[in-house]
Simulated assay, not measured.
Amino acid sequence: MGAAELVDWNAFARVRAELGSGFVRILGYFREDGAKAVDAIETAIRERNAAALVLPAHTLKGESRQFGAEPLAALAEVIEMTSRRCVEARETPDELIERVVELRPLFDATLRLFDREVSPLADRRPAFGRKPAGGFGMAQR
């Protein structure tokens, strides 16, 4: 999946504008809360505990949607809804193992895109000791 598929940049820009100067701080909370939610989901699936999957998946779903991370929100929603069904049916959440395995890489990829968007210069700086390939005041050959 590419950047356009992982993040709804219109939603991201909208929440960025709405939060103004608090945006970076709130995005930091998403990073921290999201990492905790992913950890809790992974622990719950290892313990085969459907009830323990519900809240962190629900939280991750809502926060991901807020920032336009729709694929991450959709995966968290599948985990949440399937876990709820497992709780009601008194079943283990074994059917979610593959989905939970997909979660951390998707979360990490989404955060990398957010970081690149928030700090666009990070990817554009030349490596230490290398001359930039052209630039301000330099003639292109």
Results as ranks from 00 to 15, higher is better:
V54T: 11
V101M: 10
V78G: 12
V24H: 10
P56C: 08
E70Q: 11
S83I: 03
T59C: 12
V38T: 06
A57P: 04
E47G: 02
F107E: 02
A13F: 02
E98W: 04
M81E: 11
R90E: 04
A122E: 05
T110R: 03
F107R: 04
L75H: 06
F67W: 03
E5P: 00
N49Q: 04
K131R: 15
F128D: 14
R85S: 14
V24M: 05
E5D: 10
P132A: 02
M1Y: 12
A133C: 06
I45D: 09
L19A: 05
E91I: 06
E88G: 11
F107Q: 01
R85E: 13
K36C: 08
G129V: 08
G34E: 06
A37D: 07
V118T: 14
G28L: 00
A57D: 09
R90V: 01
L121D: 04
A51Q: 09
E63K: 02
E102P: 00
E5R: 02
F67N: 04
G20Q: 08
A44T: 09
N49Y: 00
R99H: 11
E117L: 06
G135N: 01
F107K: 01
R112E: 15
A74L: 01
V100S: 15
I45F: 06
S64W: 07
A44Y: 05
A52D: 10
S21V: 09
E102M: 07
V118Y: 07
V54Y: 14
L55N: 15
I79W: 00
E47S: 14
S64R: 04
M138N: 08
A44W: 04
R46V: 02
R48H: 03
R16S: 08
A133F: 10
G68W: 00
G134S: 03
L121F: 02
F128L: 15
E63W: 03
P132W: 02
G22E: 14
E91Q: 11
L103V: 05
